[in-house]
Structures are given as C-alpha cells and as structure tokens.
C-alpha cells in the first residue's frame, strides 16, 4: 500500500470512521484522538492488509479496536456539556438518543449495516463474529431501537 492510496482511502472513509468511533466513544474529542491513533496504527499495520479492496473493513476493525482500547484505558468519554458543531446534514436527535441507549454489542452491527451499508459478511469479518450472530444482533438491535423510539 503506498501513501497516495492510504491518503485517498482514509479521506474517503473519514466520515464512516467518525461515525463508528462515535458509536463507541460518544464524544467528539475522544473521537478526534481515536481517529488520529487509528490513522497511525493503520499505517503501522499496513502490511497486514493483503488486498486493497478490503481496506474498508480492515481499517474499520482497527478503528473499533482503537476506540475500545481507549475506553478501557479510561480516557474521557461522554460529556453532556459539550456544544456540538452545527451540522449541515439532516440530524435526528431522537434517533441519536435511541441509538445511544442500545448496548454497544447491538449498536455497532446496526450502525455498520444501516448507516455504513456493510453486508452481513463484511460486518462478520469486521467484528470477527459468525455471520449468523451478526444477523441475530442486527435483528435484536432493530427491535430494541424501535422500543426506544416508541418510548420517546
């Protein structure tokens, strides 16, 4: 993998990586740190990517691992006092809260599927889970999300 490819793919995947990181860390400052570490780790481990067409799932896994390591190391997480930057894209705060209320085990596969458009097979490889487990978690996540939304 050369640097040009790396820059191009990371630029293209930046939004996805942010959403994945936010799904875990729920805090923009922590996300910024995580994304920085993800970039450096991905470059350091670039020789572990056997085929460039799998870059997306490969770097997503590195991002997930980085975020979880940061969280377990006790870095600052959710801060309700943060004032988010204004967003030009459509934003549904009710949906955001309902999604945040899901356990991560359910939230992450759901985000990878219905926000990032990954197939079950891609999610299975990203999360190192059997495909049937991915399917089951997405199914449960949708049910739980509907419950959260109905309760709002």
């Amino acid at each position: 993998m050369d640097k040009d490819f790396f820059v191009r793919e990371m630029e293209a995947g930046s939004g996805m990586l942010y959403r994945v990181a936010f799904s875990i860390l729920q805090n923009d400052d922590a996300c910024a740190d995580a994304l920085q570490e993800t970039a450096l780790k991905a470059w350091e481990k670039r020789h572990t990517l056997r085929e460039q067409r799998y870059f997306r799932t490969w770097v997503t896994r590195i991002c997930i691992n980085t975020c979880r390591s940061m969280r377990s190391a006790g870095r600052r997480l959710l801060s309700m006092e943060e004032i988010p930057e204004p967003s030009a894209a459509p934003y549904d705060p009710t949906l955001a809260l309902a999604l945040a209320a899901l356990p991560e085990q359910l939230r992450l596969p759901l985000v990878l599927c219905y926000s990032e458009g990954m197939t079950y097979a891609e999610i299975a490889t990203t999360l190192r889970l059997p495909l049937a487990t991915v399917r089951g978690r997405i199914h449960r996540a949708k049910k739980e999300l509907r419950k959260e939304l109905d309760a709002e």
């Binding site: 930046s14 936010f22 970039a39 930057e85 894209a89 219905y114 949708k142």
Partner: peptide, 25 residues
C-alpha cells in the same frame, strides 16, 4: 430505518485530526 441521520456531520476537528495523522506518515 436510516441511521445516518443519527449522527451529526463529522466535525472538522475530527477530520483534521485524522487527515493530519494520515499525511504525517
């Protein structure tokens, strides 16, 4: 079910943190 709208747009500081690191390698 469209989950993209559950997320704000990627903040500029997050994008900058990522791409500054990417370009530094």
């Amino acid at each position: 079910l469209e989950l993209r709208s559950a997320f704000r747009e990627e903040p500029e500081r997050c994008h900058a943190a990522l791409m500054d690191a990417v370009r530094s390698v």
